[in-house]
Design a protein around this nucleic acid. Sequence first.
DNA 1: GCGGAAGACTTGACTCGTTCAAGTAAAGGG
DNA 2: CCCTTTACTTGAACGAGTCAAGTCTTCCGC
Lengths: 149, 149
Amino acid sequence: MDHHDAEADFEGLLRAADLRVTRPRLAVLRAVGRQPHADTGSVLAAVRTEEPTVSHQAVYDVLGVLSESGLVRRIQPAGSVARYELRVGDNHHHVVCRSCGTVADVDCAVGVRPCLHASDSHGFVIDEAEVTYWGLCPACATQKSATSN
Amino acid sequence: MDHHDAEADFEGLLRAADLRVTRPRLAVLRAVGRQPHADTGSVLAAVRTEEPTVSHQAVYDVLGVLSESGLVRRIQPAGSVARYELRVGDNHHHVVCRSCGTVADVDCAVGVRPCLHASDSHGFVIDEAEVTYWGLCPACATQKSATSN
DNA sequence: GCGGAAGACTTGACTCGTTCAAGTAAAGGG
DNA sequence: CCCTTTACTTGAACGAGTCAAGTCTTCCGC
C-alpha cells in the first residue's frame, strides 16, 4: 500500500490488459484521469508537464491502444475532435453543449448494456447503444437568455 | 401537379425556409434524397452529374445552410466524415457498422422527442437525444464469423 | 542481473476533410 | 428592369490525424 491510495493502479491495469508498462502510457492514463473528456491536444500538453519528451505521435498511439483495450473510452461528438475518458464499462452517456462544446457525463437512464434495443435493426448485430444529449450548458444558457433580453 | 408526384417539392421547401432557390441547392437536395447518409464528397459527385460546374465550396455552403434551416440533417458518427439525409423531424436514429462504416436508419424506440430524458443533466438545457447504435452490418457480420471458422 | 527479440517511441513528412478570403455572378424585391 | 443582397467560384490555407523509417525500451528467458 503506497501513498497513492486514491489513484487507480494504472500499472496493474496495463499488465492485466497485456500491455507493456511505459512512462508515456502511465502519463497518458494519469492525464485522462485528471481531465475527463480532454482532447488529444490537451492530453499531450498534460502529459508533457510530467514527461516533456513525449511525442504527439506517441500520444495518438497510446490513446489508440488504450481505447482498443478498453482502458479508456473515446468519444467524438459531431463537430468535435476525439475526446477521452477513464470511466469505462458503466455505459454512461454524455451531454454536449451546442454553444461551447463542453461535455458532461450523464448516467444511463436504463442501466443495462446495451441500454436500448432498436426496433428494426436491418439485420445489424448491435453491441452498443451510444446516447448523446444536445443542448446548452448552464453558462451558455444564461448567456443566451441574457442576450435576448 | 407536375410529373414528379413522387418527389418532394424542394423549391417550395426552400421558399418556406426563406432561402433563395438556386440550381446548386436544388441539385444538393435531389442528391441527398437519392442517396441518404451520403458524405460531402458523394454529394458533390452526385450534384455534378446534373450541374457539372458546381464548386466543392458551394456544396459545403449549401449543406451548411440546409442543415441550419433543418431541411437536411447532418450526422457524424465517430471516425466518419459528415453525412447528410433528408429525413428530418421524426427523430429517428442510426446504426453504424464498426467494420465498414455503413449507416442505416432505425426508428425511435420511444417515439417522442427528445425520446429520452437524462437522469441528471448537470443543469444543461437539453433539446435533443441522439442515439447511435454500434455493431456489424449483415455483410460484415457473416464475413467475420466465416473468417473465424 | 544480462542479452536479445518484440514492441514502443521519435522524428518528420504527408493526407484530406473542411474552412477562409476575395472577387464574380445570380436571385428576386421594388 | 435595375439594384441590393446573397450565392457561388476560385484558390489558398488549416489542422487533426496518419504513415513510414529508424532508434530506444521493455521484459522474458537464461
